[in-house]
Amino acid sequence: MSEVLVVVDHVDGAVRKPTYELLTLARKLGEPSAVFFGSSEQGSAAAEALGKHGAEKVYVVDDTEIKGYLVAPKAEALQQLVEKTSPAGVLFVSGFEGKEVAARLAIKIGAGIITDAVDVEDGGVTTQSVFAGNFTVRSKVTQGVPLITVKPNSAQVEEVGAAGTVEEFAATISDSAKKAQIVASQPRKSSGRPELQEAAIVVAGGRGTGGDFTAVEGLADSLGAAVGASRAAVDSGWVPHSYQIGQTGKTVSPQLYVAAGISGAIQHRAGMQTSKTIVAVNKDEEAPIFELVDFGVVGDLQSVLPAAKDAVDKRKG
């Protein structure tokens, strides 16, 4: 069986959950091998967890020489790894970096690319959700090694217990790949809440909060949910950009999405329309968000949300 390369998304060696989802999907295409950019200590430490989730091999690419540069060096290293392994596919997490590394690699090796897949079937047919979630498209790479970027939360994490054998891979990086320099990097502070794209429940606030997110956060914490926001709330400086849901923010597809004080513009829908259950609280019964909801409350979020929080807390005992 051919190898399938899975590019590991990690922060300082801590593997992020979407990578494990990729390892699950990779098994539909062949035998998963993880590709870890980092130090060999971090790589060896991560290999156990990567193996447990399905990676037979873990290629560790030492990044001392390249970690200060954006995207291009990783694409070069992957080109060399693809040449060595002739994989049945390469999977990336759909984020800024994953997509751009895949993009450069596609040109280098002459391979088809599919972005933002939400499913990968046996044989490599992928599913994407397009036009703000209004259409579902199934497509397939027809030439070259399929390069597929997959959105977080697209597959179950499964433990299968593969070997996770570490193999150091020495890549040769050209000088021209080392030109866009990462001058400074400030890690994002953790909110202590679940990650937006991994959460089973998301409570989001919009302009209708008037800048006071206390009610939104209160309900979110009672439900164990992540907190999101519309662009209007982000643009007003009420919450960080990392909270933004929609076309130019994150796409979420949780079990439950609660929109509070959000009108439901098409660009917002683009990021939440595929949620399993949608609930809205909005003062305006004409708000377009009500077209999407499974349950809606026409009312003031500043009174409905805190009362709902109390009721939830009471039920939980």
């Binding site: 596609a106 002459g110 391979a111 088809g112 690319i113 599919i114 047919v125 959700s129 979630g133 209004n134 259409f135 579902t136 498209v137 199934r138 497509s139 397939k140 790479v141 027809t142 030439q143 070259g144 329309q273 595929t274 949608i278 019964e285 009500f290 077209e291 999407l292 909801v293 499974d294 349950f295 809606g296 409350v297 026409v298 009312g299 003031d300 009174s303 409905v304």
Partner: peptide, 23 residues
């Protein structure tokens, strides 16, 4: 000349509007 091909496209069934209550 495309390196990928669309197999099919399908419009997502519109979400049927659920219950909306007044507070």
């Amino acid at each position: 000349a495309a390196y990928s091909a669309v197999e099919d496209t399908a419009e997502r069934p519109p979400r049927s509007a659920g219950e909306v209550v007044k507070d």
